[in-house]
């Protein structure tokens, strides 16, 4: 399965948009946090996990999904949310804790919910997997052609919920695809240090489902493998597991000093930054011209610019709103 030119351009634009979005978020995050870095301060408090470097995973998978498909993401959700079509204005406002946010400021960056596109995420490792199995099983029960995708990090593959969910999905033959974004690190602990097997795709065999590993952080390669797995799930062929080699270009969260990274690792990762790589490829293969590129970047930047500006200008929720929506 190879992306069509339109699909390539869609992937590229969403990668650019995600990167631009996170650059603005990072800038805003640092406001009010210097000279003393205190997480409680500034327009965006709390932890902030950036996904720059991991954009190919989001676009390569979500290119095969539409709003009706169900996606669960992690504590590092922005790239996936954007590729899944989560309302950018609502997402930005949520991250700024505003009344106009997706959840009226209740959830923040680790708890983005957009029911209109069946997207949610959670800060507890691997816990999005069970819900993905459940949504997929419901689709199957009701005879709908929808699928579910659970995104997790490679560190989550050592969590009980990972193993239970794989088994359950296989037993129920649920139309679900588990996507591992392998950025080689779970905070400061390397994959090699924490994982009994070199790669997690091999674990799929233990649960009777296909397992794939995609190397190179390459959107087209991810697109191909994810496309087959998702088509298979949609056609009633059951679950699969995909582990994608990707790169975390930033710290675990903003403020992480990353003393645990081997010297030179970051430079090597930046040298393989997937966005300039894809841009080069699309230009070389004449999928787009320099003018197209400029237009794409401009469109992405202006969508982001507007979302951030609206978020900044929006009012904060009133204290009493904290008491709403505890129950339906």
């Amino acid at each position: 399965m190879t992306p069509t030119p339109q699909q390539y351009l869609w992937m590229y634009e969403n990668m650019v948009k995600s990167r631009a979005f996170e650059e603005r978020i990072a800038t805003a995050y640092f406001e009010g946090k210097s000279p003393v870095f205190n997480m409680a301060n500034g327009p965006i408090p709390g932890e902030m996990h950036l996904s720059n470097g991991q954009e190919p995973c989001a676009v390569g998978v979500c290119a095969h999904l539409d709003a009706a498909d169900f996606v669960t993401a992690t504590h590092r959700p922005h790239h996936i949310a954007i590729a899944k079509g989560v309302d950018l204005d609502g997402m930005a406002a949520e991250i700024f804790g505003k009344k106009t946010g997706l959840s009226g400021g209740r959830g923040g960056h680790m708890h983005l919910f957009d029911a209109a596109v069946n997207f949610s995420c959670s800060g507890i490792i691997a816990q999005g997997m069970g819900p993905a199995v459940g949504a997929a099983t419901a689709f199957k029960l009701r005879g709908e052609k929808r699928v579910a995708v659970a995104f997790i990090g490679e560190g989550a593959a050592n969590q009980g919920a990972f193993h239970e969910s794989l088994n359950l999905a296989a037993v129920w033959q649920a139309p679900v695809v588990f996507v591992i974004e392998d950025n080689a690190w779970g905070i400061s602990v390397s994959k090699a240090q924490s994982t009994a097997v070199p790669h997690n795709d091999s674990r799929a065999a233990a649960y009777g489902m296909p397992g794939h590993r995609v190397t190179g952080n390459d959107p087209a390669a991810i697109f191909a493998v994810a496309g087959e797995a998702i088509a298979r799930a949609r056609a009633g062929g059951g679950p699969s597991l995909i582990e994608i080699e990707t790169s975390r270009l930033a710290g675990h969260f903003i403020g992480d000093a990353e003393g645990y990274r081997p010297a030179g690792e970051k430079d090597a990762l930046f040298a393989r930054d997937p966005i300039p790589t894809l841009r080069g490829k699309l230009l070389a293969e004449k999928v787009m011209t320099e003018t197209d590129d400029l237009a794409i970047v401009k469109r992405a930047e202006s969508a982001v610019e507007q979302a951030i500006a609206k978020a900044r200008a929006a009012p904060f929720p009133a204290a009493a709103e904290a008491y709403q929506h505890v129950f339906a």
Binding site: A40, P45, G46, E94, G97, K98, G101, G104, G105, R106, G107, G108, H109, H111, F316, P317, A318, A319, E321, A322, Y323, V326
Partner: peptide, 16 residues
């Protein structure tokens, strides 16, 4: 703390 999940936004969390 009131019997609600702890909200994100400072204008919701701090007063609680």
């Amino acid at each position: 703390f009131p019997d609600i999940p702890i909200p994100f936004s400072p204008t919701l969390e701090r007063p609680a």
